[in-house]
Lab assay of single mutants.
Amino acid sequence: MQRVNMIMAESPGLITICLLGYLLSAECTVFLDHENANKILNRPKRYNSGKLEEFVQGNLERECMEEKCSFEEAREVFENTERTTEFWKQYVDGDQCESNPCLNGGSCKDDINSYECWCPFGFEGKNCELDVTCNIKNGRCEQFCKNSADNKVVCSCTEGYRLAENQKSCEPAVPFPCGRVSVSQTSKLTRAETVFPDVDYVNSTEAETILDNITQSTQSFNDFTRVVGGEDAKPGQFPWQVVLNGKVDAFCGGSIVNEKWIVTAAHCVETGVKITVVAGEHNIEETEHTEQKRNVIRIIPHHNYNAAINKYNHDIALLELDEPLVLNSYVTPICIADKEYTNIFLKFGSGYVSGWGRVFHKGRSALVLQYLRVPLVDRATCLRSTKFTIYNNMFCAGFHEGGRDSCQGDSGGPHVTEVEGTSFLTGIISWGEECAMKGKYGIYTKVSRYVNWIKEKTKLT
């Protein structure tokens, strides 16, 4: 034993070699072989497995989906700052455009905790909710729209109204504003409101030439003092309507412009014939205590009207009353817009006519005020429907199939267009061939041609 100890002390290297040989010859039971080890760690190889990531292109799944990435790591994937920024906006807080917040056709661009709407022409605001041009839906104005110097929408209202708090709607500024039905039992019968379409306001006024200088022999019209197929109006439903009495009662109609003036057809009036105007009328054979009678003290036909040349060209006249009318729910003026808007309103496509005229061709006159909704007829169809001249200051309205029309005794009465609950004068009943005849239409004086003249002559002093 002493000898062994001496050998170990003198030859430590020998001992180490012996131990190493023993270990190498022993069977290893701690580690699995290569094949079995792979069965336990069965993990798919990654895209760049075996390579240094710093030297390969980034992978979106590896960089940002398996674990949260930084902007720089995302930049490695896209290799483009702009594309990385677009991805980053949604990656950080989701897609803010998912709810489609942009209105009126706006395009949404996502941002971090926010979004941006790219608005089409005519709109602005956070969600493109603000109209900035009158060309689109009248700028959301209830009545009139004008573009300011910086191309912003400025709404306005006709006389007797003021802008509401929203700067879009119009509200009454006087007790009985024009064009409004205020009798409670008839307010439910107000005709369907007309909503502004998209309009090209630059070209809204037709490029028409008034044929002022045409000389033409007097034409022989049949029954051209021209509501057939209409309905009984309720008291106060058309408070701007008046009836004219002269040699015979209810020979023509008219509309209240203001307390002192009536507008009617020029062919209705004769110099030297006494005319009485009755406002607030409903049943011409009954006294309903809503009527107001006034005498006409002055007749002003349009300066281009000449019955000797043509009885229905420039067929418009103004009547001055001896005493002002007292405005109330049964006696209310009709609204008159400017030339541009009167023309736009007419193009809405349908209007209402009213009167006490004959209820059928050569038949009896109506006792109760009649009204009828009539569609506008395109000019080409209008011209083809008659052998008589249709001037540019006239328009056609009615039904091709016949059966409904204005008729004798309705002449001078109103053709009105309702705009968001307020009625505007767009025409004056003038003439036609018979009444409600198939293929024939009622012919009306186009008020847009005469609004400046009306307003100039009827100013209240």
Results as ranks from 00 to 15, higher is better:
Glu323Lys: 13
Arg46Thr: 13
Leu318Ile: 04
Arg191Phe: 09
Thr271Leu: 14
Ala192Ile: 08
Cys178Leu: 01
Ser148Tyr: 08
Thr290Arg: 10
Thr342Lys: 00
Ile40Glu: 13
Val273Pro: 10
Ala192Leu: 13
His267Pro: 00
His361Lys: 13
Cys335Asn: 00
Ser385Thr: 11
Pro12Ile: 14
Ile336Met: 06
Lys68Thr: 15
Ala149Ile: 12
Cys335Thr: 00
Leu319Thr: 02
Cys435Thr: 03
Thr84Lys: 09
Asp249Glu: 12
Ile112Val: 15
Gln216Met: 12
Thr81Trp: 05
Thr342Arg: 00
Arg180Leu: 06
Val257Cys: 02
Cys252Thr: 01
Lys438Gly: 14
Ala436Ile: 12
Ile210Val: 14
Val92Ser: 14
Leu52Tyr: 08
Pro101Gly: 01
Thr389His: 13
Arg75Ile: 10
Gly363Ile: 06
Cys28His: 03
Glu159Arg: 05
Ala250Pro: 08
Pro375Arg: 12
Gln96Asn: 15
Thr85Cys: 04
Ser49Ile: 11
Glu285Ile: 09
Leu318Lys: 00
Val273Arg: 13
Lys455Val: 06
Thr287Arg: 06
Asn306Ser: 04
Thr225Tyr: 15
Ala266Asp: 00
Gly439Ile: 02
Ala173Trp: 06
Asn343Glu: 15
Gln90Trp: 07
Val374Trp: 04
Glu323His: 09
Ser11Tyr: 07
Val4Asp: 08
Val374Tyr: 02
Ile344Trp: 08
Asn343Ser: 14
Lys45Leu: 10
Met6His: 08
Glu208Arg: 11
Tyr352Leu: 10
Gln57Asn: 13
Ser70Leu: 09
Ile300Lys: 03
Gly427Lys: 00
Lys438Thr: 13
His302Pro: 02
Glu82Gln: 15
Lys387Thr: 11
Tyr352Ser: 11
Ala337Asn: 00
Val257Leu: 06
Asn283Gln: 09
Arg180Gly: 03
Glu10Leu: 12
Gln96Ile: 08
Gly254Glu: 00
Gly412Gln: 04
Lys109Ile: 06
Lys89Trp: 05
Pro120Gln: 07
Pro301Asp: 03
Thr81Glu: 12
Pro197Cys: 05
Cys382Asp: 02
Glu10Val: 13
Gly125Ile: 01
Tyr312Lys: 06
Gly105Val: 00
Gln219Ile: 10
Leu52Gln: 15
Cys178Ser: 01
Ile262Lys: 00
Glu159Val: 07
Glu418Ala: 10
Asn313Val: 11
Val153Glu: 05
Ile299Pro: 02
Arg379Ser: 11
Thr264Tyr: 01
Cys252Met: 01
Ile316Asp: 00
Ser411Phe: 15
Asp198Gly: 11
Asp131His: 09
Gly13Met: 10
Arg162Thr: 11
Val263Asp: 01
Leu346Cys: 02
